[in-house]
Amino acid sequence: MTDTVWAPDGSNLVVHADNAAFLPTLPDGAFTLIYVDPPFNTGRVQRRQETRMVRNSDGEGDRFGFKGRSYDTIKGALHSYDDAFSDYWSFLEPRLLEAWRLLSDDGTLYLHLDYREVHYAKVMLDAIFGRECFLNEIIWAYDYGARARNRWPTKHDNILVYVKNPAKYHFDNDEVDREPYMAPGLVTEAKRKKGKLPTDVWWHTIVSPTGKEKTGYPTQKPEGLVRRIVSASSRPGDWCLDFFAGSGTLGAVAGKLGRRFVCVDQNAPAIEIMRTRLDGKAEFAELLPVEQVPAD
């Protein structure tokens, strides 16, 4: 195993790499918060398998992590589904296993998907983390884009929230931005001024096509959405990780809130956008061999 370019006492880091190759170089329990927004699946035949990973003390497991630590991948009943992207779950599963390993004991994973795959992801994460570690399904609702005429228009994403240890996870609702009460006349003046804590349904606009936050990255997520996640589930100085970093929203938000961050992406345009967006706020590491760097 190669040495990692990350250090717990080092600088914020943006890594141009295949996350499947980079994540095993990071140490167990290094991150308080992991937010990932992987590519959404859009439908073909695929196979899914319930999976969980446990430490193998004899060093004879089928997966290896930081410092050569050995893990067994425990697979349950195999199921087949008629969907798309035949290897989507073989692509995502090992990365979610790494996310479990990399979370600290008080850490939280936020997995951002949509209606196509979120139900299967829930089953997979139940197997990896344990059903008792499921905390929330957040619905991000927005009102933008085309409207279907032959069905209810789809105007939301799903964010699954899992904790490493349900007895120790960090969650600070005092740090979360508040919302106006829908019926302000029914609450006290003090409550009206403070606002109410958001529920598991978040009404938040997308990134405006003409707004100053826009980077040009096609799947960019709004800072306000990620700010709630970072504020609630990490503390100043904690390390946050996004290994499908895209335009670097997690890094931008974490930096503003005094958290430390690692952003990983193998897409060259994403790295260039992050160079501009996070200029002076992070170091950059190039780990892709030249022949593997995607063309612009």
Score class of each variant (00 low, 15 high):
66 F>W: 14
63 R>D: 01
38 P>G: 13
69 R>C: 09
47 R>I: 13
83 D>R: 03
71 Y>G: 07
81 Y>N: 04
82 D>R: 09
90 S>T: 07
79 H>N: 13
37 D>K: 00
76 G>W: 02
85 F>T: 08
47 R>V: 14
63 R>Y: 03
83 D>I: 02
67 K>D: 15
83 D>S: 06
41 N>G: 11
39 P>C: 04
87 D>G: 12
54 V>G: 02
40 F>I: 06
60 E>P: 00
65 G>H: 04
56 N>I: 12
82 D>M: 07
88 Y>N: 05
66 F>Q: 07
45 V>Y: 08
46 Q>F: 09
67 K>H: 13
39 P>E: 12
72 D>R: 08
44 R>Q: 12
40 F>Y: 15
59 G>P: 03
57 S>E: 15
68 G>M: 03
47 R>H: 11
50 E>Y: 09
68 G>K: 04
58 D>Y: 08
76 G>P: 01
78 L>G: 07
76 G>Y: 00
73 T>F: 06
63 R>W: 03
50 E>T: 12
88 Y>W: 09
37 D>P: 00
90 S>L: 05
61 G>C: 08
86 S>L: 04
51 T>W: 04
90 S>P: 00
74 I>V: 15
43 G>A: 10
46 Q>H: 07
42 T>C: 08
53 M>I: 12
67 K>F: 10
37 D>E: 04
66 F>H: 15
57 S>K: 06
59 G>V: 05
55 R>L: 14
65 G>F: 09
63 R>T: 01
60 E>S: 05
49 Q>G: 06
62 D>F: 07
76 G>L: 02
61 G>A: 02
71 Y>T: 08
38 P>R: 10
55 R>G: 06
87 D>K: 06
78 L>Q: 13
72 D>P: 03
71 Y>D: 01
46 Q>L: 07
52 R>G: 15
47 R>Q: 11
65 G>S: 01
60 E>L: 00
48 R>M: 13
57 S>W: 01
56 N>V: 09
37 D>N: 08
70 S>K: 03
64 F>D: 05
52 R>I: 02
58 D>Q: 11
54 V>M: 00
78 L>H: 10
63 R>A: 12
51 T>A: 14
60 E>W: 02
55 R>N: 08
80 S>G: 09
40 F>L: 04
45 V>A: 09
75 K>N: 12
47 R>A: 14
76 G>M: 00
41 N>Q: 08
74 I>L: 14
52 R>L: 02
82 D>Q: 07
45 V>M: 06
78 L>W: 11
42 T>N: 08
66 F>N: 10
37 D>Y: 05
49 Q>W: 05
